[in-house]
């Protein structure tokens, strides 16, 4: 009984907001003005939920860092941690395949192992020593979030590309002490006015 989980983990997966696709280097792919507005709306939404967030973990890519910078302003005192594990990539060859997106095979080996490691590292039931329910935010990327959702629900991971996520949207997973997983929301962006919703 000493090694049984007792607490529930709430995982909030946030897709970064709209960014400038023209830059060739990651550092040049910064948020657009609309992207900054979206991040403000996402931060405001998270703050309005009235829960005490334990931490923000974010991808080390520029668009995730900038989204986190803005969200953080709405959640004062919440620590943030950067990780390379959550960087965008090609998690697994999608089924059915798509014609306009064909990464090299080696990309799936590199990114797939890393994104699977991100899933195992961050998505699990609470440790036995965790006494209270936790609320954690992960600011990352569409492919990473879609793969994590498939894996957490034990759905075939190659189906990840059948889902679509808006910029700044909130995906909420609940992991019970029993290990049961519930997807409470997938890509919620209903808190944004329709003319500010994008999927770039």
């Amino acid at each position: 009984d000493n090694f049984k989980a007792r607490a529930t983990r709430h995982i909030f997966l946030i897709r970064h907001s709209q960014y400038n696709l023209d830059g060739s280097l990651d550092k040049d792919r910064t948020l657009t003005e609309l992207g900054r507005e979206q991040a403000e709306l996402t931060g405001g939404r998270l703050a309005s939920l009235g829960v005490k967030f334990d931490k923000i973990v974010h991808s080390s890519m520029t668009r995730a860092i900038e989204t986190t910078d803005i969200i953080s302003k709405h959640l004062p005192g919440v620590n943030r941690v950067s990780t390379d594990l959550l960087r965008e990539g090609a998690p697994i060859e999608p089924d059915p395949p798509v014609s306009d997106w064909k990464p090299e095979a080696r990309q799936y080996y590199e990114d797939g192992a890393r994104i699977e490691a991100a899933f195992r590292n961050f998505i699990h039931r609470a440790d036995a020593k965790q006494e209270e329910d936790s609320y954690e935010i992960f600011v990352c990327h569409a492919n990473v979030i879609r793969y994590i959702v498939c894996r957490a629900l034990q759905f075939p991971p190659e189906g990840w590309l059948r889902m679509s996520l808006n910029n700044g949207s909130i995906t909420h997973l609940v992991i019970r002490p029993s290990g049961r997983v519930a997807l409470r929301t997938l890509g919620d962006s209903g808190f944004m006015p329709p003319d500010k919703i994008t999927r770039t």
């Binding site: 697994i92 195992r120 590292n121 998505i123 699990h124 039931r125 034990q154 075939p156």
Partner: peptide, 20 residues
């Protein structure tokens, strides 16, 4: 191919492999 896809819920899904 990672993960079970049999449709049967694996209640020890996060205990079978090291975390990273």
């Amino acid at each position: 191919r990672p993960g079970p896809t049999s449709g049967v819920w694996d209640s020890n899904w996060d205990k079978r492999e090291p975390r990273s």
